[in-house]
Structure formats: C-alpha cells, structure tokens
Write a protein that binds this DNA or RNA. Sequence first.
RNA 1: GGAGGGGUAGCGAAGAGGCUAAACGCGGCAGACUGUAAAUCUGCUCCCAUCGGGUUCGGCGGUUCGAAACCGUCCCCCUCCA
Length: 370
Amino acid sequence: MAIRFELIHQDKETGARYGILHTPHGSFETPIFMPVGTQATVKTLDVDEIKEVSQGLILGNTYHLWLQPGDEIVKDHGGIRGFMNWDGALLTDSGGFQVFSLSKIRKITEDGVTFRHHLNGSLLHLTPEDSIKIQNNLGADIIMSFDECPPFHSSYEYHKESLERTIRWAKRGKEVHENPDSQALFGIVQGGPYKDLRLHSIEELKKIDFPGYSIGGLSVGETKDEMYEILEFLKDKMPEEKPRYLMGVGSPDDIIMGVENGIDMFDCVLPTRIARHGSAMTSVGKVVIKNKTYENDLGPLDPNCDCKVCKNYSRSYLRHLFKAKEMLGLRLVSYHNLYFLKTLMKDIREAIKNDRFSEFKDKVLKEYYR
RNA sequence: GGAGGGGUAGCGAAGAGGCUAAACGCGGCAGACUGUAAAUCUGCUCCCAUCGGGUUCGGCGGUUCGAAACCGUCCCCCUCCA
C-alpha cells in the first residue's frame, strides 16, 4: 500500500480526528491543509518557501500538466517532484474538476469527456483511464479518480446519472492504475445535495475499495449551510480507518466545520488567489491590504503571526506594493496566507489532542477570516 | 508681428445644437474570489440627497424654445513663418 493512515485521537466532544498520514515521501499530521500548485508551482512561491508554508504535501493538476508541458515531459524529470524540484509529497487532482469548471464547452459521454483546450481551442478527449495514466506519469503519492463534479443544484436525476457514471469511472480507473504500491488512488464521493445519493456513492466506492476517500461537489456555489449539512450527514458514513479529503475547501470557517465533521485533508486555491488579489487571512479577520485604511499602518499584516512577512514588513508597505503593482506584494501575501493556514491547522490539531476543539472552533468562527 | 491648431470631470481623450452629468482609458474608492483559463472579475467615481435636486465642458456676452457644441470678444497653450 502506498499510504497508511493512523487515526490517533478523536476530540471527545465533537469527534474531530487527529491522525498521521504516511506517504512514500513523508508522514503528515492531520488535519492537514495542502497548498495548491496546479501547474507544478504554487503561484509566486519557490520551493524553499513552499516548504516553509506547507506541511510538505502539496497539489498538482492532471489537466494542466497534461496539456502543458505534457505528462511525458514531466515523467522524464521523474515526475512532478523532480520537475519542480520538490522533495516533499504530492497529490494530483484527476482533471475532473476542470471538466466542471470548463463546462461551457464540454460533452460528457460514458467513455469520457470531450472539451476544448482552454488555451488554443483544440478539441480534446479525456477518459478515466487517460487520467490515471497521466497521473501515473506525474508520479504523485496520492492520486484522484476521474470524476464529474456537477453544479450543486443540478436535478436529482442528473446527479444520479452523473454519480453512477462517476462510480463506473472510478472502477475503470482503479483497474488501469499501474502503481498502487507507490501511488494511493482515492475515490470521490459525489451526489450533490441529495443524501441518499451521497450514501449510495460511499457504499459503491467502498465496494471498489480505495485507500482514501474524497468528498467532491462541495464549495461549488452552494451556501455554507448547505455544505455543512452534507458534511454533517457524511460524518458517520465515511470509512473510519481511511483518510477523508474534502476537496476545494480552504476558508478558515469551512475548514473548522470540516474538521468538526471528521475531515482529515483539505486543499484550496483561496489563500493564494485572494492573496494575489490583495486580501489576507489573519487572526483578526480578513484584511484587504489594498484598502486605503492601511495607507499609513505601520503594524504587521497579522499582529499574532510570526511568519517572515509579518515580522519584516508593515501593512503600509504591503499596501504600497499592491498599489504600485509590484509583484513582491503578491508573493508576500501568498506566503502569509499559506503560513496562516499552516498555523491554523497546527492549532486545530493541538485543540483536538487536548479535547478542546469545540472551544477553539468558537474562537476561530468569531475572530478569524470570514 | 503673421499663419494655423487647441483649451471637456483628478489625468488623458471622445463628443460639433435636444437622445449629454457628458463615451472610453488611466488613476482613485469599494466588493467578490473555495479540487486555479483568475497579478482576475464586478460596482462606484461633479456636488448634495432616499425619491430627487443643484452646479458644469477656459472667462464674459450673444443667437436659439433648447448650447460643451453656433456667433462675438477676451485670456491662456502648442506648431510653423518672420
């Protein structure tokens, strides 16, 4: 088996999980947040910085690297790790989400998905088998089944049909997976807002048997309450002994709610995207650093953060970088936001270990970003 | 001194009688962003106000039912010639 998951402790009141995820390239305490490095780069940061702001496990993307530069080239470097000079662990998404986010120009059939290249318009076709083969070439420690991620509010009928197909795709993917001993293939739970479909999804994926399970189809436009309702429903349905990965979630409040509902792994572009757009996650709430109010603020971005950005630069300077369109601003806030989440996850784990998660949750929801 | 061109909102720049409080760009001020087609997108940006009202297109004076636009005059700016 490529990975091993140890469930070490559960918060007595909420059941929030603390564990360790062992991979071929490192063991990681969970709950963990994994920065997203779609194109074999966490935007604006170099590898040394990624080490500082992550736990050592980051994401890459099948769709993007397949199209550019091509998975064969990445394979020639020994996979993404060699390509980007990353000596930590990796997880790749299957490209399934891109099928959803590029939905204006897609056609889904039993075989796979046909859609247009977002850069040059050429017609492309991707199957579950292709996705796994590409991910074999990319060489991540954890890889994803090729799934369809329908809009949350699609009809029951559509979700059902899509879900059944995604289950068949999961089975097909597992059958062609070449390296189960070095790459753990996760199944992805879908079903939108429909609990019976979610349950059905879990049951079928369990039959196929994966070393870990992802929850997909959330944080795609539904309300927070809708998302939390599904998370709560799934809490005691997911396999106990396997890692649970909530895909695409990364605001502090959503992470907290995920952890409370038994999630072990998170990834999200939010911290790096909003950083590039001038917003910071801090212990005192969201700071839109480009706002005029920080024009002459000599204090640090986050008064309770000990990252190099908060130690060395003022809010006023950071605002100046954004107003002047200097790229250092994007880098520094990206660094901080990821560091902030790394710290948040550490604090979450401590709280669980001490059976004080509930208390910690209240604090975060009251004071932190959003 | 002569000939031509021009002065429009914070800046640049359209507009050449009513559809114009005035396109568009920049700048400014906010907002959004959740398995990254995103250093992006959206809104606001003369003044006061909730409807609505009040002042504008170098100055002044005209023509007209109506002028940023037409006429006169003055003031500034640019180019060329002496």
